[in-house]
Design a protein around this nucleic acid. Structure first.
Lengths: 133, 133
DNA sequence: GTGGGTGCAAATAATTTGCACGGTA
DNA sequence: TACCGTGCAAATTATTTGCACCCAC
């Protein structure tokens, strides 16, 4: 996630795009909705519009810079694409999102697809959990 | 899924509710959106309204008669709750939805939650696959 | 300078809700 | 009969789009 990524995606390097990029860079490993980005950026004296945020997020997603997720709620959230695949664990009490990776799980999914005569193209896996006190 | 289920849920046995119930009974193992139900029922000479469908679906879901899913697209789909937990495999070419169950997978998920100091409350797992010719 | 980019407001699309009427228990 | 349930239309919410102005190249 650097300014040159914007240019490589065939997009002009503009202030709103840099602000969104910088926000993700400053908050690694977190997941943000368009509305959260809008609120936070406006608080940082940005003049960005909500529609621009949606447009930029879609463009960044198309360029493979970020990934879009739909967890339980209605709003989509976005995270930086690090190239390292992982799944998500959502705390049902706090809404906190954690990432995890399990090689065993990945292999099992490929096997399950094969058992049904299919190859695995993609998967979506979210565990809803509660902290044990 | 029988008429007595409606009564047991504390709901009156009305025509629209019976029509939705019957539709699910007639199409086992399939997944329908509110809009699909609306169109299909209207074609069957029902006078049901779309708002009623949403209300009935929410009530049936609260009563545990059906389950709501959000796959890739924007619209939610509903299926009958058979009591047998399963996950879903979506064919990326045809959009066909298939159900499967893996004990290994279920156990692995519980373990993964424990590894993060959590108990598993629920999970959402969808495999996007392509048939091997 | 030019064409893409932007903010704002209006448009969409899925779902929910208000309201007066209708049907179940 | 008392209320819950219903259809329709209007309201909501997340997201997209139209438009006139603006800025990166």
């Amino acid at each position: 996630m650097k300014a040159s990524d914007i240019k490589n995606a065939g997009l002009k390097v503009t202030l709103p795009r840099l602000q969104v990029l910088e926000f993700f860079a400053k908050h690694p490993g977190n997941h943000f909705s368009a509305d959260e980005l809008f609120t936070k950026l406006r608080e940082s004296n940005s003049e960005i519009g909500l529609a621009t945020i949606y447009r930029v997020l879609n463009q960044f997603e198309a360029a493979g810079l970020i990934i879009k997720h739909q967890f339980d709620n209605e709003q989509s959230v976005y995270e930086v694409e690090t190239g390292e695949h992982h799944d998500h664990m959502v705390d049902v009490d706090t809404g906190e999102v954690n990432e995890f990776y399990s090689k065993k799980l990945e292999q099992l999914q490929v096997e399950l697809a094969h058992e049904h005569g299919c190859e695995l193209i993609d998967h979506n896996m979210v565990l809803y959990v509660r902290k044990i006190k």
